[in-house]
Simulated assay, not measured.
Amino acid sequence: MKNPIIVVGLGELGSVFARGFLRLGYPVQGAMRGQDLQALAKDIPNPEAVLIAVGEADISSVLQDIPNAWQDRLILLQNELLPRDWQAASLPTPTVISVWFEKKKGMDSKVVIPSPIFGTKAKLVFDALAKVDLPSYIVDSEEELLYELVRKNLYILTTNIAGLEVGGNVQQLQQEHAEVMNAVAHDILEIQAYLTGQTHAIDNLIKGMLEAFAGDPEHGCMGRSAPARLKRALTFADQANLEVAKLREIAKQAQ
């Protein structure tokens, strides 16, 4: 009998991964947001892995509450994730997947590009996604992981925040509003540099973002989370005394 896999947060994404783990033959134990994880760890002290599938707004509080016995077997998948998030909870580097497929209620998963994975449980995640026909690949280093996390952040934040001004889809953003796209992207990368403590290759990351645009040209820019993402980005910019003029302009227009 294989050790169970715990999935904390059984929303749309968590359910996709749970199905993949089940098809690999692992028992899956779901845990709802707010459930007492310390009590669950007494019942399941030695899980194969623990997937944290709560939203980005809840990730900080959940990571602070991870039982000691689980800390070396975490899998994270949140948007806007960076090393500072698990470092703040004094956790070892977890397995991380930058999810590049979209799953909404009542629809099949829609792939933008293959999803990169890094960490000790990367093969497990790769195999689970293969069981549900979702493409992924394993990266070999924390440096590659950081690039992938910043690339995903750049994509999510640029499209959402630029979408507050211009609407439309990512193809229209690139072709019709390139000036807005580039201004927002440069502001976002300033913030990412602050949050990661290092500068990043801007041209390379923008190229990576545009690769994702090409994977799903009709992907809408402005999701429901766009206002909250802009507010969060400006909070970080204020902490770092960054000008981020375009982000501030968009925030002022949105008032």
Score class of each variant (00 low, 15 high):
Lys2Gln: 15
Lys2Val: 09
Asn3Gly: 07
Pro4Asp: 07
Pro4Cys: 08
Ile6Glu: 08
Val7Gly: 10
Gly9Tyr: 12
Leu13Asn: 08
Leu13Phe: 13
Gly14Ile: 12
Gly14Lys: 11
Ser15Leu: 07
Ala18Glu: 10
Arg19Phe: 00
Gly20Pro: 12
Leu22Trp: 05
Leu22Ile: 14
Leu24Ile: 11
Tyr26Ala: 08
Val28Tyr: 06
Gly30Asn: 08
Ala31Tyr: 03
Arg33Ile: 13
Gln35Leu: 09
Asp36Pro: 02
Gln38Phe: 09
Ala39Val: 13
Lys42Met: 03
Asn46Ile: 10
Pro47Cys: 05
Val50Pro: 00
Gly55Glu: 00
Glu56Val: 09
Ile59Asn: 08
Ser60Ala: 14
Ser61Thr: 13
Ser61Tyr: 06
Val62Pro: 06
Leu63Val: 01
Gln64Asp: 02
Pro67Gly: 07
Asn68Trp: 01
Asn68Tyr: 01
Arg73Met: 01
Leu74Ser: 02
Leu74Cys: 02
Leu77Trp: 00
Asn79Asp: 00
Glu80Met: 15
Leu81Ser: 02
Leu81Phe: 02
Pro83Leu: 02
Ala89Cys: 09
Ser90Arg: 13
Pro92Gln: 00
Pro94Ser: 04
Val96Glu: 01
Ser98Ala: 03
Phe101Asn: 00
Phe101Ser: 02
Lys103Phe: 01
Lys104Pro: 04
Met107Ile: 09
Met107Lys: 13
Ile117Gly: 02
Gly119Lys: 03
Lys121Ser: 04
Ala122Gln: 08
Ala122Thr: 07
Leu124Thr: 13
Leu124Arg: 11
Val125Ile: 14
Val125Phe: 11
Ala130Ser: 08
Lys131Arg: 09
Asp133Gln: 12
Asp133Met: 11
Leu134Cys: 03
Ser136Ile: 10
Glu142Ile: 00
Glu143Tyr: 05
Glu143Asn: 11
Leu149Glu: 05
Leu157Thr: 14
Ile161Met: 03
Gly163Lys: 12
Leu164Gly: 11
Leu164Lys: 06
Glu165Pro: 02
Glu165Asp: 02
Val166Lys: 06
Gly167Glu: 09
Asn169Tyr: 06
Val170Ser: 05
Gln171Glu: 14
Gln172Ser: 13
Glu176Trp: 01
Ala178Asn: 00
Glu179Ser: 09
Asn182Ser: 13
Ala183Met: 07
Asp187Cys: 11
Asp187Val: 14
Asp187Asn: 10
Glu190Ser: 12
Ile191Val: 11
Gln192Ser: 13
Tyr194Trp: 12
Tyr194Val: 10
Leu195His: 08
Leu195Cys: 11
Leu195Phe: 05
Thr196Gln: 06
Gln198Glu: 13
Gln198Trp: 04
Gln198Phe: 08
Thr199His: 12
Asn204Glu: 15
Leu205Thr: 11
Ile206His: 04
Lys207Tyr: 14
Leu210Glu: 15
Ala212Gly: 05
Phe213Asp: 07
Pro217Asp: 10
Pro217Val: 12
Gly220Arg: 15
Met222Val: 06
Met222Ala: 14
Gly223Arg: 10
Gly223Trp: 07
Arg232Phe: 10
Arg232His: 12
Leu234Thr: 10
Thr235Phe: 11
Thr235Pro: 00
Phe236Thr: 09
Ala237Tyr: 06
Ala237Leu: 08
Asp238Glu: 14
Asp238His: 13
Gln239Met: 10
Asn241Lys: 14
Leu242Val: 05
Glu243Phe: 07
Glu243Ile: 15
Ala245Thr: 15
Lys246Ser: 03
Leu247Thr: 09
Glu249Leu: 05
Ile250Thr: 03
Lys252Val: 06
Gln253Ala: 15
Gln255Ile: 12
